[in-house]
């Protein structure tokens, strides 16, 4: 009995030591692109994030974006590196946009052997399966793909998922194609549309590119609010990171609301009138 207690204490101590130093236990992750980085956009681990397609036909882009976010959450060098990803998919999504394919997952940077695919008949079943999966701390990330707006997907259901995700530490992504979804309790909400890619040699389509809009963020580092914005991003599967697609066309980074407006100071001086005497 004493030995068991000693080992438990030792394990706790090690976990405490590791928490400070290891990169894998960071509480949040970034997209890896300079644009969102400058806006202070970081996504919390062990939280529920929402990715919605801008239009129903943009679902493939939203799917790719959600998978890319999940890969960022469990990227190499973090604790989730070897853990499996679980993807709950509704049958309707499969009928509409095709079945997931292993070479396509490899092309986005996910080893297909790491993925567990759960097929759900309807939204309620998908949410129930997700509710079980989100409690399992052994998962690297969880993707919940819902078709349409099922009745079961409401504030209570998403709040429950978010609380369970916080308890287990599983970063979860709710993916759907409904433009006007019900109110959900999520940490961040993204709206994703495809973007024209940077062409490869011979005018071939390039890497997966997205036009991602951050609609909602419940608070960044230290609880500071984060302004929304939209960025054009492309996914680099080899480095497992997003990149700015077109640095010139990105929107101006908004100033964080918690800080004094430094840019405003010279602006105020510009309005003063200086009297100059004409000579000669």
């Amino acid at each position: 009995m004493d030995t068991i207690r000693d080992v438990a204490a030792l394990r706790q101590m090690l976990a405490g030591l590791e928490a400070a130093r290891l990169p894998g236990v960071e509480q949040s992750f970034c997209l890896g692109a300079a644009g969102p980085e400058a806006g202070g956009v970081r996504l919390a681990r062990g939280a529920l994030h929402e990715v919605q397609a801008a239009a129903s036909a943009d679902m493939p882009a939203a799917t790719g974006f959600a998978l890319a976010l999940a890969l960022r959450a469990a990227r190499p060098g973090t604790a989730g590196e070897r853990r499996p990803l679980l993807w709950v998919r509704q049958d309707m999504a499969e009928a509409e946009f095709g079945r997931l394919d292993a070479p396509g997952l490899t092309a986005l940077g996910l080893d297909p052997a790491r993925l567990i695919l759960v097929r759900a008949r309807d939204g309620a079943e998908a949410l129930r399966a997700a509710g079980d999966a989100v409690c399992c701390a052994g998962l690297g990330a969880l993707i919940i793909e819902i078709w349409g707006t099922p009745k079961a997907l409401d504030l209570t259901a998403t709040r429950r998922l978010a609380l369970r995700a916080a308890a287990s530490g599983v970063t979860s992504f709710l993916l759907h194609g409904a433009p006007q979804p019900a109110a959900t309790a999520v940490a961040t909400r993204w709206r994703v549309a495809p973007a024209a890619s940077t062409p490869l040699a011979g005018d071939a389509p390039g890497a997966p590119s997205f036009c991602a809009t951050l609609l909602r963020h419940r608070g960044g580092e230290g609880g500071r609010p984060v302004e929304g914005g939209d960025w054009k991003l492309e996914w680099d599967h080899a480095a497992c990171t997003f990149r700015d697609l077109d640095p010139l066309s990105r929107t101006v980074v908004p100033v964080p609301a918690g800080r004094p407006d430094r840019a405003a100071a010279p602006e105020a001086r510009r309005g003063t009138v200086v009297a100059l005497r004409r000579t000669g």
Binding site: L86, I116, V118, R119, R121, D132, C136, G138
Partner: peptide, 24 residues
């Protein structure tokens, strides 16, 4: 962790049917 994931697969397989909890 691996035990937990296996237990999750068992539970989902039992509830949804084996043909709905899949690997590539």
């Amino acid at each position: 962790e691996e035990e937990e994931v296996a237990a999750l697969i068992d539970r989902l397989s039992v509830r949804l049917g084996r043909e709905r909890v899949l690997r590539f």
